[in-house]
Structure formats: C-alpha cells, structure tokens
Design a protein around this nucleic acid. Structure first.
Lengths: 350, 350
DNA sequence: GCAAAAAATGCAAGCGCTTGCAAAAGAGAA
DNA sequence: TTCTCTTTTGCAAGCGCTTGCATTTTTTGC
C-alpha cells in the first residue's frame, strides 16, 4: 500500500470533476465566468485529491509567478530580518512566497544574487541592501521586473525607493545629546566604502556642524555586528579622543559598543552616553536599555511588498516613500559628565 | 534605445552558437559528451547574451529543481537563523537557492508551508522546527521529496534527523551547577505543548533527579523571545520559589531572564546563576556574558544541506546525525549564594 | 583508405499549466 | 418552439527547457 504518491496534476483534478483542464484552471485562479456549480465541483475535486499546483508549470505558462525575491545585506542584523519578516507576512497573506539571499555587503554578491533571481521569473525583487551601486540600478531599470530599493539616493526610473531620512534621525540624536551638554561626540559606523553608509556618516558630521558647532567629534568604522561595534569603540577610545557620547549607525553595533565601554570600566550613561538606530527588539534588553531612533521596520516590509505587487500593473511605479526616524529615549543617554552635580569642569568618576 | 530586454532563452544562445538547444542545454548542465570546441562556443554565447536559465522551464522539464525549502519555527531567534545561514552558505556554493518559511511554532502553519512547498517541486525540505507532528512526518515519508528534520524523536523512514542531545547538554549544565552547590534550580522553557520542547524540559527534570537529587526545582514557560524569557522569570520569582540558578532552554530567552533579574535587583551570578543553550553570538554580549551550551549551528546547516542534496540519489537516507552540546563557561554562573564567604546558611545580599 | 565502433549532435516529444479563440449550452425574446 | 444573444466550457497551442533515441560526425583498427 505504500505507494509513492506522485504529485496530483490539474488534469487529474479536471477529470475527477468532469471538466476540462481549462475550466479547472480558471476555477483555481481568477474565478470569472464559471458556473457556481462547476466551481464547487472543481474545488471539491482539488481538495479531495489534495491538489497543489505546480508553480513551475504555472509560472512557465503564464510568464509570472507568485514568488518575490529579497536581497538583504546582513541577515544577522535584526533590522534586516524584521523587514524581511514583515514583508514575508504581507506576502504570505497574499499567497506569495519569498526567496531570500544575503550579500554580507558585497556588491558582487548582490549582482550574482540578482542574476540568479532573474532566472526565476520572479514577481519582483526587493533590494534591502546598502551595496546597491548606481550602475546596477540603472541596468535594472530597463527590465520588466518590478524592483524596489531601500534608501537609494537616486532610484532609476521604474524603481521604487523606500527612503529613510537618516539625516533627520541623526540630527535628532545630535540635538538631543547637545541639549544634554555633550561636547565630545563620536560616530560608529560600518562599511565606509558604500555610498549609503557614507551618507549616514556625512549626516552625522553635518548635524554636528549645524547643531553642535562647538563640539568636537570623531568617527570609527567596523563590521556590522556587535563584534564590529566593539572593535570600533575600542579604536575610538584608544585614539585618545574620549567622547562623552557615541552615536551608533545601528543598534546591532551599539550592543558591542556598550560591551566595550563596560569592559573598560566606563559607565553608561554616567561617563558615556550611547545611542543606536533602528529600535530593534533587543535594544530594550541591553544594559542599560538603549536610546535609539525608531525605524518602523514593520511598515517598511509592507511597503516593499506593496511596491512590488500592487503597483506591478502600471509600468511606472516610483512613488517613493519617505520615513522619518523617531527618537526613543531609554537609559543609555544622560547629561554629559562634565555637567553632573553642578561641576562643569571635572570629569567625575566615583 | 531603451528596449525592454526580454529574457534571453536557451534557443537564442543555441542559435548564436550555431548548435541545437539540446546541445546548448547539455553544455550548460552536465557537461558530458560535448566537444570542447562546441562547449566553448556555447559558453561564450551564453555569456555574451547574459543568459540566465529559466528555472521554471528547467524544473518543469526535468522534474527537479535546485531550490531547497527551509521551514523554521522562529526566525527571530538567532539560533534558527544561524542554521539557515549556514545551510544557505552550503547551498549557494553548490548553486542552490533557498526558500524559507517560518511558522511561529504553529503546527498548522507548518502544514500549510509544506503544502505550498510541495507545489514547488523542490529538491528537498529542511524542517528546522519543533512543531513537527509525528503524523506529518509519516505522511511525508511516502513522498519522493527528500526531507530532513531537526531533532525528531522518531523520524519516519526515508527522513533524516539531525539530532541534538539536549538531555546531554542539560545534564552537563545541571552537573556543573550542582558542583557549584546550587540547591534550588529552575528551568525556563517555551511552548510546552510541543513534544520536542516537552522533552527538553523532561531532560532537565531527569537530570535534576539524577545528578542533584537533593535539590529543589521548578519550571516556567513562555514565548521564545527575550520578552518571553523575562516573563517566565517573573512568573518564577513571583511564585515564591527563589532559585539560585536558572537554566534556560535557549540563549535568546536567557537574555530576557537576565533582564528581569537585573530589574529586580538580583545580581548575576552573585545571587542567581543563569545558563543558556545554543551559544548564539549575542551570548557573549549579555551582561554578564552567558554561560551556555554550544550547539554547532554552522555544522548543522551543512548537515541539512548534505542530507537533502547528497543523499538524494539513494532512495534510503536516514543516517541520523547526533550532536552533543558542549558547556561554555562565562560570567553568568558562579558558586551558590549560600556558600559564598564560607557562610553556608544565610543568603547574602549586601 | 574503408568499415565499424564511438562520440557528438540534433530531433521532437513532452513537463503541467494558461489562455485566445471557437464551440456549446442556457437565457430571453418573438 | 425557434432564433438570437450571452454566458460557460473545451480545444489546442504554446511557455523554455530536458532527454531518449535517431542521426551524423569523428575516431579507431586494419
């Protein structure tokens, strides 16, 4: 009795229901112009046989599929994963599946992933990545494949860009720390070679010039991991410049920054304030909990899905979406040490 | 000039190279029985036209594809993600892609994901999940689709199981804590309703009976998140039973346990010792760093890949693999409070 | 240099599904 | 009942690729 139950085909369903495959197909997809009675018979047959359509045949015949591609820079960082999850949620609700690739911030891997995906005849591809080069974007814009990009400065025609105003977030952080009397601040970033990340650092520098003109500042970069954050913090502190506040490009790295400070006996926020970016779940669980800038990852994933699927019909879809990060205050920031206890000159360390 | 560059087909490549599609196909896949000269021409044509095969056509014609399915219980938990990543790494190297779904530990979602995947004619499916019910496994075992399961107690025929000896790990943790004189221990788990997780709790209970027979113990369960860990710890502590050691079913929840203890002014490890499980990257970054049991996620992902792809040829593939967790000592565990400072009776709290 | 064996290539039939078009079946009007 | 006009259905041609088998080309042995 242990038969290999081979996949049930549409034809079997159709035969079982006493109709042609054409009708069965119509019932199972767009249910237009099919008599209710027939519809029910086909549906019953499909259920009875436990039919599940062969997506390859379907994709081949129709020239479209219900699979979306997602390319992430770094799956390890919960930020990207949250975007992925929310996109997946939207996709699943609508009967789509997701294929995911990640690049570790390597532009070449982006290109090869893209090539692999282009053979999949996907319904669209989301580039949630920082290593998207302008050339790639331009070459993509001629294809019929719907594309949406995270935070691209100059999206090409036909490409939607979901933009996050990192500069606004950075400004808010700087303003806030400035209001706490911090005079020496530092920025911890990663992958300085990539344009979008370069821009985030630039946003810090400009915010400093504009909103805390008398303050000194410094920057350091390392990998996008807690280890990288830790390393960057070490570099910063070893350099002799001792900041009273460290602004991190994201929460994931901030975790490492907090660790390095603790390791060196520096208290947060008494000696050094730290801010993150993204407001990942874990940022509530650091010690102390992290002051950060919230980016609504949940919304972003859905925006990506909508950009790819719902605007797909119209050939032109580049209504870019702009999101502004909101400051979330927690325990990792406080008044600058020089100004504690009305003692504005001496750096206290009890 | 802005033409929509439609996908290049095999036929165009063949024509360009002056051969038939049959030959072109043979060159691009198994390169057997093709003259070197022809081979080069086809390859050159493919490159020149920037050909990328239509996987749907290929899958349909050949009845197999180079896509693997992965089902995870909880993408949020870095443990699962690490397994996914390592599997992805192995897959990418071999020219495979991965489709991932996650279930949030809901058996129904497992079933529906499986159904969706079965329409994809995948090369195999990895069930890295705890909500795999025996019935599902049995029904799967009759299909031709290669399947590998994480830690299934009773894998069905033709299904590989990658097993982790949680009981060994648990025993090691209990023995270690017992050697530190802990007499009141607690277990923090999640999703008590699912058999594999039930077993892990059971492993704790049995280890306690066997290796710390005079100690008291208690257990609590909540979601598999830091928040859940925190909640479970709260329940535990509110119950009146005040453990000197808490063993967590994984590191992700342990993060929340640490937070709750800190919130209540309990010091780790002076007042309470905490152990995790998995040795995720973040476990080095908690405060204090987490003592845990290492599970080689990196290896596991590759084992999954191999189980699915390499053993695929033979019809029988159930050489189960067994892994034993190794204890990793860090700062979150220490001697029981009753025994500090040669003061075996009073619980000190300075 | 020729026949036979071996190797390389091409032919053509699908894989399971979609869909334009034609045919059949109902519905409505006369 | 008969004849239009709709609405439902079926027919059949692919979608781009793989692969068994037939055919052609090359190699080998004498």
């Amino acid at each position: 009795m242990l038969r290999q139950n081979l996949p049930v085909t549409l034809e079997e369903v159709a035969r079982h229901a006493g109709v042609s495959t054409a009708t069965a197909s119509r019932v199972l997809n767009g249910t237009v112009g099919v008599r209710e009675n027939t519809r029910r018979r086909v549906l019953a047959a499909a259920r009875a046989l436990n039919y599940s359509p062969n997506i390859h045949a379907s994709a081949l015949a129709s020239g479209r599929s219900r699979i979306l591609g997602v390319i992430l820079s770094n799956v390890e960082n919960p930020f990207f994963l949250d975007v992925f999850r929310s996109m997946d949620e939207a996709a699943t609700e609508a009967g789509y599946s997701l294929v995911m690739e990640h690049t570790s911030y390597q532009p070449e891997r982006l290109v090869s992933s893209l090539k692999a995906m282009s053979g999949m005849h996907l319904a669209g591809v989301a580039l949630v990545a920082s290593e998207v080069e302008q050339g790639v974007l331009d070459s993509l814009s001629r294809r019929s494949l719907p594309i949406a990009v995270y935070d691209a400065a100059h999206p090409a025609p036909h490409i939607t860009s979901i933009c996050v105003r990192y500069n606004v977030g950075m400004r808010r952080a700087v303003e806030y720390l400035h209001s706490l009397r911090h005079k020496r601040m530092a920025f911890v970033g990663h992958h300085a070679g990539l344009a979008p990340l370069q821009e985030r650092k630039q946003a810090f520098v400009e915010s400093m010039r504009q909103y805390a003109p008398k303050a000194e500042f410094s920057t350091a970069e390392h990998d996008d991991t807690p280890q990288g954050g830790r390393q960057a913090a070490a570099t910063l502190l070893d350099s002799g410049f001792s900041p009273t506040a460290i602004l991190c490009v994201n929460d994931f790295m901030a975790i490492g920054v907090l660790r390095e400070l603790r390791e060196r006996g520096l208290r947060v926020p008494e000696d050094v304030s730290v801010t993150g970016f993204d407001n990942i779940n874990l940022s509530e669980f650091t010690v102390p909990a992290l002051t950060t800038l919230d980016i609504p990852r949940w919304r972003i994933g859905r925006l990506f899905f909508d950009a790819l699927v719902n605007h797909q019909s119209s050939t032109r879809f580049s209504a870019d979406t702009v999101i502004e990060p909101e400051l979330v205050l927690r325990g990792s920031t406080g008044i600058a040490p020089d100004h504690r206890n009305g003692n504005p000159k001496s750096r206290q360390r009890p």
